[in-house]
Design a protein around this nucleic acid. Structure first.
Length: 294
DNA sequence: ATTCAATGATATTTGGGGCG
DNA sequence: CGCCCCAAATATCATTGAAT
């Protein structure tokens, strides 16, 4: 082992090589329920599916793993890695076979253990996945009873660029961290990859800490329904985006900004003199239970 | 009154990057 | 590949107003 380290050091010192190490979580203790009740738990989830359209595809593999961490967001224990295959009832496209290495025979007759899924997922304060917008939709379609879980997205809710990364895809983040996964696009391996990435520090803050903080925020989605079109420029200047499908300007705000925004809207956008019929902005509260849903 | 060009609001397209 | 999101670029459409 130490002679490997020496080789790595020699190679990297030349400046011509970067050495990638296999993702390895074996140094972290695996527990069922930790003895220390002060620990917090997130569950990392990854689903492999028959395609990319959450409305049309189904899950062929689901992996879950609990991550226990202390007050300083240090990962002190992991749950047993759990994953299940599931028969989608249709042949796998060659593309998915190539991507995941799975084939129809592997999946034949397999079913996800729904009771186990519920058990694991219910011990967590957060379900984490890489691009939760995809996994959440696919997961909730398969488990309609679990539509009210709190979710966090390790792809979008961690400022990877500020941490020195170029892209945000799992493979790219791993490689730039000098890591690789020998079973990329298998659910269990991808879950472990997310876990190592969450454990990384940047200026003394782990990615997990940043993610938990981001997911814990309550934000507000404010939609300026019925705003007079003359106000477009002001709304745009103020950071509103146009929703072309439903035709209104909207913006997402931090909790601390909400009152000021309401006041601004009341005076600048919904001044009564302009609107005898009094349209009103739509204000929706968004927490981890609502985010990454649509 | 009619036409045309300019203006500005809204729609559409495009591009990048994410997921299987 | 298809789909989604976001944002910037580009196209389209309606209105306005000046000129004829």
């Amino acid at each position: 082992m130490s002679d490997h380290d020496e080789v790595i050091e020699v190679l990297e010192k030349t400046g011509d090589y970067r050495v990638l190490r296999r993702v390895d979580l074996s140094a972290i203790p695996v527990v069922d329920i930790p003895a220390d009740f002060s620990l917090q738990c997130v569950v990392v989830l990854d689903a492999e599916t028959t395609g990319l359209d959450p409305d049309r595809c189904s899950i062929v593999e689901l992996a879950l793993r609990a991550v226990w961490y202390d007050e300083e967001f240090r990962v002190v224990a992991l749950g047993e890695p759990r994953s299940w295959l599931e028969d989608p009832g249709e042949p796998l496209s060659s593309e998915i076979q190539k991507l995941t290495g799975l084939n129809d025979a592997d999946l034949h007759g397999k079913v996800i253990d729904a009771a186990a899924v519920m058990d694991i997922v219910s011990q967590a304060t957060l379900v984490v996945s890489h691009n939760a917008l995809f996994d959440r939709r696919v997961f909730e379609k398969r488990f309609p009873l679990l539509r009210n879980l709190p979710w966090a997205c390790s792809c979008r809710e961690i400022r990877w660029a500020e941490r020195g990364f170029d892209g945000r895809g799992l493979g790219s983040l791993l490689m730039q961290s000098r890591l690789f996964s020998d079973k990329a696009h298998r659910a269990g391996a991808d879950v472990d990859a997310v876990i190592v990435l969450l454990m990384q520090r940047h200026q003394d803050q782990t990615a997990l800490a940043e993610l938990v903080a981001a997911a814990g925020r309550t934000t507000w989605r404010v939609s300026a329904i019925g705003a007079h079109y003359d106000l477009k420029t002001y709304l745009k200047e103020r950071g509103y985006f146009w929703n072309p499908r439903e035709c209104f300007w909207w913006r997402e705000l931090e909790e601390s900004q909400l009152e000021a925004e309401k006041a601004w809207l009341a005076s600048a956008v919904y001044a009564p003199r302009h609107y005898p019929s009094a349209p009103a902005p739509a204000i929706e509260r968004i927490t981890s239970r609502e985010r990454h849903r649509r």
